[in-house]
Simulated assay, not measured.
Amino acid sequence: MTSGLRPGEVALEGAPDPDGPRLRLIGHIRSPWGQGDCPKNIARARETGRGATVELDPLFAPALSGLVVGQPVILLYWMDRARRDLLTQTPRHVEAPRGTFALRSPNRPNTISQATVRITALDPERASFGIDAIDCFDGTPLLDIKPWLATIDMPPGDAG
């Protein structure tokens, strides 16, 4: 997919490896966002005041045990509508092209994104929970949920 490049962008030739690692989707994110109105990042999503819902496959309902309302969690999700071939990108907010690994863009070889969100509601019987905000399209596949822990997730030297 090398069409639609901006000046300074470079795309990887060839498709991603179809026999690469296998992931098991655990659910989907229900968000208020679609093409054309999705915030560019979680900070902008929070500014809108619009929350979202995480819906798990019912098989994973027991895995919600121990989570509580108000707790921060890290969501790992698959940006299934993003490009996977860009090596350099020219976002509108920077002056010059940058390597994909120097950006938080969803366009990357493996379109895994992450957001640290706060649980606003919890419904283990329905295998779902509310979150304060998210920056992905409605129906985005969910890969994993991890508790956010200050003792582990704060970079060294940062105040907690």
Rank of each mutant, 00 (worst) to 15 (best):
S3E: 08
L5E: 02
L5P: 09
R6Q: 10
R6G: 04
G8P: 05
G8L: 07
G8Y: 06
E9T: 04
V10E: 15
G14E: 06
G14Y: 08
G14W: 05
G14C: 07
A15C: 09
P16C: 04
P16V: 01
D17M: 07
D17P: 11
P18M: 05
D19W: 13
G20V: 03
P21A: 14
L23Y: 14
L23F: 15
R24N: 10
R24I: 07
L25I: 08
L25F: 15
G27K: 08
G27E: 01
I29L: 15
Q35L: 08
Q35E: 13
Q35R: 13
Q35N: 05
D37L: 11
N41T: 04
I42G: 01
I42W: 10
A43L: 09
R44G: 09
R46S: 02
E47S: 09
G49R: 11
V54T: 09
V54E: 10
E55A: 13
D57S: 03
D57L: 12
P58L: 11
L59W: 15
F60I: 01
F60A: 06
F60N: 05
P62N: 01
P62Q: 04
S65I: 03
L67M: 15
V68S: 15
V69Q: 14
Q71E: 15
V73Y: 10
L75D: 04
Y77T: 00
Y77E: 01
Y77Q: 05
M79E: 08
D80G: 00
R81F: 11
R81P: 06
R81M: 11
L86V: 00
L86Q: 11
L87G: 01
Q89S: 06
Q89R: 11
Q89H: 02
T90N: 12
T90V: 01
P91D: 04
P91S: 00
H93S: 12
E95S: 10
E95Q: 12
A96F: 11
P97F: 04
P97E: 03
R98V: 10
R98A: 10
R98Y: 02
G99Y: 07
T100W: 15
F101Y: 13
F101L: 10
A102T: 03
A102S: 14
A102P: 03
A102K: 11
S105Y: 07
S105M: 08
P109Q: 00
P109M: 01
T111S: 13
R118N: 02
A121H: 06
D123R: 12
P124A: 05
E125P: 06
R126E: 07
S128P: 01
S128L: 04
F129V: 00
G130T: 02
G130N: 04
G130K: 05
D132T: 08
I134C: 14
D138K: 11
D138R: 10
D138P: 09
G139D: 07
T140P: 13
P141E: 01
L143T: 00
D144C: 03
D144E: 11
I145S: 14
K146M: 06
A150H: 12
D153T: 10
M154E: 15
P156W: 06
D158P: 00
A159T: 07
G160E: 14
